[in-house]
């Protein structure tokens, strides 16, 4: 019985994240449009886009190799697995021990590695510029998030996300300076990783400042649909990750009943909506940075994360 429930909850989680991810993106776009006093596309537009793209033919560049065709599936699988391992409505996931937080981040790193390779496969100037900038951003964002994880893991005494969520939800933790620093660092990294303003603009094309869009320029049809779905999943993953570490309340523990799961799911929707709204609000109130301001922005995140970890090292109670 318990095994069945665990499998069900893990399976539900896997498909929930997949189904919700386009909705979150649609929601953020809608809120952004409303904040700019535009009507905005309908909430369900991302689903329609995905379905339309899936049905279309793939137009592959003449020079594209087999790797180019495999990479969308690799990126999608890596991101999906990572997103299924971040607790959303319930904290005790069946397979949560498969990969701890460090491994989840490394899994996303694998996805990015292949995405950067895809940008270089066709041999165009735009693909190269995208990949080159992506690895520059990653070279700061990845250490920043790793060190943030160090700080959080030292407070929680574990790198297992379910454990961290349980610990953070308990009353032992209180307000910690290092947690505050880690939160700021994590938000900065999340903005960079999801190619949001001020680091990258998800809505532009044909602009030399773009990063993510430049890498996927040569993709079309079902491949592009998968890559778009992966970036939507990634956004959902980061919002869930921040929610799971910093506002874990309400997530159903492993051995709870159906009400707890429903309650957890409702609360999770609320958290996602709040996260999406804040993201939209932040994006509308700030301008995109020059490319060479990004290292400073991310460097700040790295330093904050380092400071959080350092405080944890020198003093147990901070």
């Amino acid at each position: 019985m318990t095994t069945l429930r665990d499998i069900l909850s893990q399976g539900a989680q896997m498909f929930l994240v997949l189904l919700l991810a386009p909705l979150l993106t649609g929601f953020v776009r809608k809120v952004k449009a409303r904040l700019l006093r535009r009507r905005g596309p309908p909430l369900l537009q991302p689903y329609r886009d995905l379905i339309r793209l899936m049905r279309k033919d793939v137009v592959l560049a003449e020079n594209a190799s087999w790797l180019f065709r495999v990479i969308p599936y690799l990126i999608f699988a890596g991101t999906w697995v990572a997103a299924s391992l971040v607790p959303t409505f319930g904290s005790g996931l069946l397979f949560s021990w498969t990969a701890d937080l460090i491994a989840i981040i490394a899994l996303l790193g694998s996805a990015r590695f292949f995405q950067a390779l895809a940008g270089m496969d066709v041999g165009t100037a735009f693909g190269g510029i995208g990949s080159s900038r992506e690895v520059m951003i990653a070279s700061l964002a990845e250490p920043a998030i790793l060190i943030t994880v160090f700080g959080v893991a030292m407070i929680a005494g574990s790198t297992q996300l379910s454990r961290i969520a349980e610990f953070m939800g308990s009353s032992e933790v209180g307000l910690r300076v290092s947690l505050g620093l880690a939160l700021v660092a994590l938000i900065i990294v999340a903005l960079a990783e999801n190619a949001r303003i001020p680091v990258d603009n998800p809505a532009t094309h044909l602009e030399l400042t773009m990063v993510h869009e430049a890498m996927v320029l040569e993709y079309s049809g079902r491949h592009l649909a998968l890559i778009d779905l992966s970036s939507e999943l990634k956004l959902l993953l980061y919002v869930s990750l921040i929610a799971c570490i910093f506002v874990p309340w309400g997530a159903a523990p492993a051995d709870s009943g159906i009400q707890a799961f429903v309650f957890g799911a409702a609360l999770y929707f609320g958290k996602l909506a709040a996260g999406g709204f804040l993201l939209a609000l932040f994006e509308t109130s700030i301008a995109k940075m020059r490319v060479f301001r990004i290292p400073e922005f991310l460097g700040a995140a790295l330093m904050l994360a380092l400071l959080a970890t350092l405080l944890r090292f020198v003093s147990g109670s901070l």
């Binding site: 033919d57 003449e62 165009t124 040569e218 079902r222």
Partner: peptide, 12 residues
Amino acid sequence: ASDRLRRGPAWD
């Protein structure tokens, strides 16, 4: 969905 594929010049 679709498994069709065509080759064309790079878009860039």
